[in-house]
Design a binder for these strands. Sequence first.
DNA 1: AATGAATGAGAATTCATTCAT
DNA 2: CATGAATGAATTCTCATTCAT
Lengths: 197, 197, 197, 197
Amino acid sequence: MPENRLDRIHAAACAAFLKKGYGGTKMEDIAASVGVGRSALYASFPTKEALFRGLVTNLVEHALPLERILQGIEAQTLPEVLGDLIARLTLAMSKGAGPVLHRLIIAEGAQFPELGRAYRKGVLQPLVTTVEGLLELGVRRGEFTAPDTRLAAQHIAGAMIMTVLWPRVFDPRASKAKVLEAANALAGMLLYGVLKR
Amino acid sequence: MPENRLDRIHAAACAAFLKKGYGGTKMEDIAASVGVGRSALYASFPTKEALFRGLVTNLVEHALPLERILQGIEAQTLPEVLGDLIARLTLAMSKGAGPVLHRLIIAEGAQFPELGRAYRKGVLQPLVTTVEGLLELGVRRGEFTAPDTRLAAQHIAGAMIMTVLWPRVFDPRASKAKVLEAANALAGMLLYGVLKR
Amino acid sequence: MPENRLDRIHAAACAAFLKKGYGGTKMEDIAASVGVGRSALYASFPTKEALFRGLVTNLVEHALPLERILQGIEAQTLPEVLGDLIARLTLAMSKGAGPVLHRLIIAEGAQFPELGRAYRKGVLQPLVTTVEGLLELGVRRGEFTAPDTRLAAQHIAGAMIMTVLWPRVFDPRASKAKVLEAANALAGMLLYGVLKR
Amino acid sequence: MPENRLDRIHAAACAAFLKKGYGGTKMEDIAASVGVGRSALYASFPTKEALFRGLVTNLVEHALPLERILQGIEAQTLPEVLGDLIARLTLAMSKGAGPVLHRLIIAEGAQFPELGRAYRKGVLQPLVTTVEGLLELGVRRGEFTAPDTRLAAQHIAGAMIMTVLWPRVFDPRASKAKVLEAANALAGMLLYGVLKR
DNA sequence: AATGAATGAGAATTCATTCAT
DNA sequence: CATGAATGAATTCTCATTCAT
């Protein structure tokens, strides 16, 4: 069960890095959390840095279940599709280790440029591109309005990430039950705005 | 010119902490940037932690020029007031050391809980409360629609912060000239949504 | 074939210690070279140190085939006997693990004093004493000249060891074929000097 | 007095590396010997390895006072010149940190290939080449006899180094007063051999 | 016997901090 | 005041050694 081992280390490291950041996390923190000695970690990872990189890379790969979400969407009209996408994706990204990734990238991206690149390529770009695609289609059909679809897509993506981040970073006491509600509210606001029609 | 000294240290520390985070920044980085020796910093600050706290506290105090922005708003109708607030505040927060603060809090907030509290109290709460106030008023007047004004205000605040953060964190190559454009686009989207009326 | 095992470990250790020294050699290096796991070595040796000591002790015992060489000498005159001894012994010591021993003693002797003692007692002393004996006899017979036979014997012994060491330590690219030639040349020089008669 | 500092560290390191070898020497050994804390060493050298390399490189540069010795020789005849060279150079190399270098190279040369190269280029080659030059000249003049001058020069160089090494490595109790005597005896033996004329 | 996993005692290195000058 | 040198507490990483299987 080497996979098991790796996963347990990843989980422990995830929690530790989330709480203390890369520099603030000691190998001992992780080891203790896994329940082994410091040196046992080095059987699985050559370096603290390698452990961190591996973890983040792993997180990047699972951060954006775009395919799965897209396939799960049953809505027909374009606005409903976009709304569903925003709501479901935000919800999905809030699960599990999702929020950790965004926090780590914001915190440590500058020190690990290639992780920043991986994140942009694996998470940001697909998300923005997908949203932008929907917006463009909608604009062409006359259903959406957006002076700059690229910018709008960035704002939507950013808002989604912020929604994922919020309870973890800005509101530690927030009940997790509200995540679904928040995701839906976000979708509504981004689609309809706050202005009454 | 002791203020001068303090300010120069703050500026240097700001840049250093932004790039490397708290743990990754060495006193020497800051000292070298100021152009003095390591030990000279200790004439102004007793510890690295104190320097960091002082810096962040300082940033918190100037992060949200709410009064100034509110006074500058000339719009009359409520929607215009909210739109102006969003756009102008986002723009203002993008200036100078603004983006640094949010990044530092996201990165190090968990390790310095009282800085997180100060940020929430000094930045997040006023912002959310102000926006929420406008929303409530608008909802009561029948001009706005929002199932949960608190949540909506959080989303708006989050989107603003994310807009401030984006060029620094997620898009290092972005031209800074687009900040104004981005702020306006954000205001538009949050007010009207992407759905064509 | 426990002997076989021991020998294989010794051979592997020999090569490893030669290349990296005692401190620089990891048990894993040896184990990998033997083709077993680290822990398997501990079935044969209680500690790395014991392994090293055993190896060196073993090398000391076989380093100086004095008896065999002496018996093989067919020369009659004293000078010829000494010349033969120098040449044959130098050649013999150059074979197999011979050079390793001298290098290890020079390198690690200070850290393992009793190995130094064993080497002096088992290699240096017999060699010096034998040579000195021949010199004394020759001096008494008027065939040799040496103001201080002890010193002369030391120099001869030293030169022999250096000749053994040279290709391994100072001239890694030297062809091994020249060992015989070098041994003979050494014998000639020590007997006759470089001065033309 | 930064030079002073460097020199003191070099001296302490010299003694430590001599006694324990590279691997066996702890930074603390050196630091304690200098009378400072471990970390103080890192102000002068970035790494233990750098310290070692610097030391050895330094030793190489001063190991062979060939010019000085050659200028000091007053002998006229070729044999006397060679004898003087051997005796004086051996004596000079026995002084100070001289013996350390040879021991370190024999011990650690394989692990630091470029130090081995530096030693060969800076010490071995000049020595062998100089001696070979004298031998060739003498052979041409009919004063020396040597079937292979290169080999003979190597043997002479090797014997000199071994003479330098002997009291430190093989005979820790040897009185240092005998160094002069040993050097002269070596010169005599290499010139005249042990065979009575 | 052999192995893979684990351990723990170090060792090198870093860095905030102090202090004599 | 500012500085350069020094410190010592941490921290990462290594490796001989042990042990259950």
